[in-house]
Structures are given as C-alpha cells and as structure tokens.
Simulated assay, not measured.
Amino acid sequence: MENQLKGKKVAIVVANGFEEVELTKPLEALREAGATVDIISPEEKSVRAWAETDWGKDYPVDKNIKDVIAQDYDALVLPGGVMNPDHLRTNDRVIAFVIGFFDDSKPIAAICHGPWTLIETGELDGRKMTSFKSLKTDLENAGALWVDEEVVTDNGLVTSRTPKDLPAFCKKMIEEIAEGRHDQRGNSAKRGGVHQLG
C-alpha cells in the first residue's frame, strides 16, 4: 500500500468523544499509503478520544472546521463513537463541509456511529450502507439501504459496523480514495451548488 495515496489529501473530522481506534487505525493506514492527513474538528487545539469504556488520549487538531473547505481535500473519513457524531451532526459548518464531498463526488468513509453525521446531508437516499446496528432505523429513515456486512461500498461511500471491521474498512477506504472521484451519486445527483459558510 506504500505510496498508493501519494499526493492525496484526506480530512478526518472528529469532535470530543470519537472512538479512539476508529481514528488511529485509519490515520495509520492512510499515512502508510502515502496520504497527507488533517485531523479537523470544531475544537480549537486538541480533541479527546473515547477508548471503549472511558476517556482516552487528547489528539492535536490540525485545522478548525471553520478554516477548511471540501475542495481542499480528496477524501473524507468519519470515525464513530456515540458522542462524536452527535456533536458533529448539529454543527452547520461540519454539515456544509461534508456536503461538499458529496457535491464533488469524492470518497467518504464512515464507521460505526460515523454515518449518523451523513444523515444530516440529505444525500443518503438509495445508498447501500452499513453502520453500528443501532443506527439502522435512522439510516433507513434517511433513505439508505442498510445491510449487516463488515464493509459496504456504494460509489465511493465506504461504511463499516464496528472496530472489529477496521481491517476491511481501511483496505476498502484506501482502494476508493486511490480510485478518486465517483461520478454517480444515486438519487441525490440532482442536488448541486456550493455549500460554504462564511
């Protein structure tokens, strides 16, 4: 996988309470594949992980969400953890940033509770996805076709269920990012425009 993603720039977006291993394993895989990776957050300097049953380490934030646009990146990764996406999905800047990846048909990878944030984009109608099982009804209500599989890919959208799926998730994530843009956006292709907040 070395240099498979050379020249690619990837955004990992997290808030406090992200599941630690769901950031560290994809981050490690992306860097090993040659990608440049920014940890982006609504937090200013550092963001705190959740490590299974208690708070984990603090991780430095490379860029604040208010200072980035989707056009600066080739792909997006959304780790899970229950608290993390619950914070992200109520942040207008985060949602505008995520929508930018759909608008540009760029790869998006979300694991566990990470797909929760994607619901707020209105872009999941007709998309085949998986997630942590408690999100099944939420995703189906958003129009997604939910399946119970370790990794699911739908035109550049990669999803997995739990940390146990991380090996398959990371492998497929890198494959999709290496492929680049995926032009088909399913039923939401008619949406368009630039989503930026000043």
Rank of each mutant, 00 (worst) to 15 (best):
G180M: 02
L124F: 03
V147F: 09
L135E: 04
L157I: 15
A142M: 05
K171H: 13
S134R: 09
K164N: 11
S134F: 10
T162W: 11
L145W: 07
H113N: 13
A144Y: 07
I108N: 03
P163L: 00
P115Q: 08
T137F: 12
K128N: 11
L124C: 04
P163A: 00
L118M: 15
T117P: 08
T121K: 09
M129R: 03
P107M: 10
I174N: 14
N155A: 11
E150A: 05
D165L: 11
C170A: 08
I108R: 04
I177M: 03
N155Y: 13
E179P: 00
D154I: 06
D183M: 12
L135M: 12
A110C: 01
A178K: 05
G180Q: 07
L139A: 08
D165Y: 06
Q184W: 14
D165T: 13
C112A: 13
N141I: 00
S160C: 09
S131G: 15
V152Y: 03
E123M: 13
F132P: 06
S131M: 11
T159E: 02
A142Y: 08
M129C: 10
I177T: 02
H182R: 07
K172V: 13
W116H: 14
K133D: 12
I119T: 05
R181A: 10
T153F: 04
E140M: 04
Q184H: 15
S131K: 02
A109T: 02
S160E: 04
G122T: 04
K106Q: 08
F132R: 04
D165V: 12
L145A: 14
G156Y: 02
F132N: 06
E149H: 09
G126W: 05
D165A: 11
E179D: 12
H182N: 12
E140V: 09
G126D: 08
K106R: 13
E149M: 06
G122C: 08
S160M: 07
R161T: 07
T153N: 07
A144C: 09
K164D: 14
T130G: 03
I174G: 09
I108W: 01
T159L: 06
E179K: 15
L157S: 04
S131A: 15
R181Y: 10
L166M: 13
S131T: 11
F169Q: 02
T117R: 01
S134L: 10
L145K: 15
A110R: 05
L145F: 13
T137R: 14
A168I: 14
A168P: 06
R181D: 11
K171W: 04
T137C: 00
M173S: 01
A109F: 01
N155C: 10
H182P: 08
T130K: 06
K172F: 07
I174P: 10
P115E: 11
K133C: 01
C170F: 01
A178Y: 07
T153H: 06
Q184D: 15
S134H: 10
K136S: 01
K133N: 12
D125Q: 12
P115V: 10
R127L: 10
I177G: 03
E120S: 14
V158S: 06
I174S: 09
E175L: 00
E123D: 12
D125E: 15
I111W: 05
S160V: 06
E140F: 00
N155E: 12
H182L: 11
L166V: 05
E176T: 10
S160R: 02
F132M: 07
F132K: 02
G143M: 08
